[in-house]
């Protein structure tokens, strides 16, 4: 009503809050820079900070970026999707199978000959995207129709997607690499000096950012994460929107599966076990709140670099790369603690 605040905020505490605010906004960049500096200084020159190695880092981050974009929308609705790593794997297996089936006979394919590569790859891409979208929609439907917590639903579909994927692939690599032209022309191909998968991730990132910031889709996502009952009373079709968000996350996981095939020509479940951890850490490192309501798509993409930089640097340093998982796990906890601290401070004014 009146512009005068009811209580004069204590100046000292106010400064503390501003410092916390500033720190929590910028620490990700500082952390990333420190990480880069650390690896640069502690590895032999010409190994870590080379354009070839940095492109390699960016290439291997492209999948995580796609996962993190979808996860950002999900987390902003105050949900969580633990299944996207599994969906990625399942979609990659389905797409890869189709690519192998259709590109030639068994004998041809194992000999590395792919007479119908183009048709097979295109159809494989469609199948992978459809498989991802399907699982995303399943997540959304279970969460809204059966009123189950997202944590449980996506934990369940995490198991199912890995299980089904391994059943289809026989629990190991696909019988042969997918048509090598796919990798040549796309996965390992470059346009303007940048790998195509990175371009793809960038384009998706920008589109997602714009829709998140400036369009109804993003606004409803934030509104639902802030207060779903208020959104419902305001006439927003909350359940339908939640289904859309999980479906989007599934679709993007399917797209990441396509990138997986394009970049590595094959896939296996073992290499995707930590995808969820990486994607969720990217999102929370990017400052998106696990409590929902607030987030930034662009910063999630920055956060996505932390796990890949760590892995890459540790490999070059010849340290067991498993330390990466330890470090990422610890940073997640730190980031969420920071967010909680900020929320608590922010709430003091009320």
């Amino acid at each position: 009503m009146s512009a005068t605040p009811t209580t004069e905020p204590d100046a000292g505490r106010d400064r503390g809050r501003m410092a916390l605010e500033a720190f929590s906004r910028s620490w990700l960049f500082v952390f990333l820079l420190l990480l880069l500096a650390f690896f640069w200084l502690s590895t032999p020159s010409g190994t870590f900070l080379t354009s070839a190695n940095l492109s390699q880092i960016a290439l291997s981050t492209s999948e995580v970026v796609l996962l993190a974009i979808g996860e950002t929308f999900v987390i902003v609705t105050a949900g969580i999707d633990l299944s996207i790593g599994g969906i990625l794997f399942f979609a990659a297996v389905c797409g890869g199978k189709v690519m192998l089936e259709l590109s030639g006979t068994n004998a041809q394919v194992t000999a590395g000959v792919y007479p119908h590569a183009t048709r097979a790859v295109l159809l494989g891409i469609v199948v992978a995207l459809a498989a991802g979208t399907f699982w995303g929609a399943i997540n959304g439907a279970l969460i809204t129709r059966m009123r189950l917590p997202p944590f449980i639903v996506t934990l369940g579909t995490y198991g199912m997607t890995f299980g089904f994927g391994d059943l289809l692939s026989g629990g190991t690599y696909l019988g042969a690499p997918v048509p090598t032209s796919f990798s040549h022309n796309f996965g390992q191909g470059k346009g303007l000096g940048i790998y195509y998968p990175i371009w793809l991730a960038l384009v998706v990132l920008i589109v997602a950012h714009v829709f998140f910031r400036y369009a109804r889709f993003g606004r409803y996502t934030s509104a639902i994460g802030s207060n779903d009952e208020a959104s419902r009373r305001a006439g927003i079709a909350v359940d339908r929107h939640i289904v859309k968000v999980y479906t989007l996350a599934g679709f993007l996981a399917g797209m990441a599966g396509v990138l997986d095939l394009a970049i590595y020509t094959n896939t296996t479940s073992v290499s995707h076990l930590t995808d969820n951890l990486n994607a969720i850490s990217a999102v929370v490192l990017g400052g998106t709140s696990l409590f929902g309501g607030v987030g930034t798509v662009l910063l999630s993409a920055v956060g996505a670099f932390i796990p890949t930089v760590l892995t890459n640097g540790l490999v070059i340093k010849n340290v067991q790369p498993f330390w990466q998982e330890v470090a990422v796990g610890a940073t997640i906890i730190f980031a969420v603690y920071l967010d909680q601290l900020r929320r608590r401070r922010g709430g003091e004014g009320r």
Binding site: S222, S226, A230, R233, V294
Partner: peptide, 13 residues
Amino acid sequence: ETVYQDLALADDL
């Protein structure tokens, strides 16, 4: 139009 007792606002917006 209604102003609900449990304020129906989206706090983060």
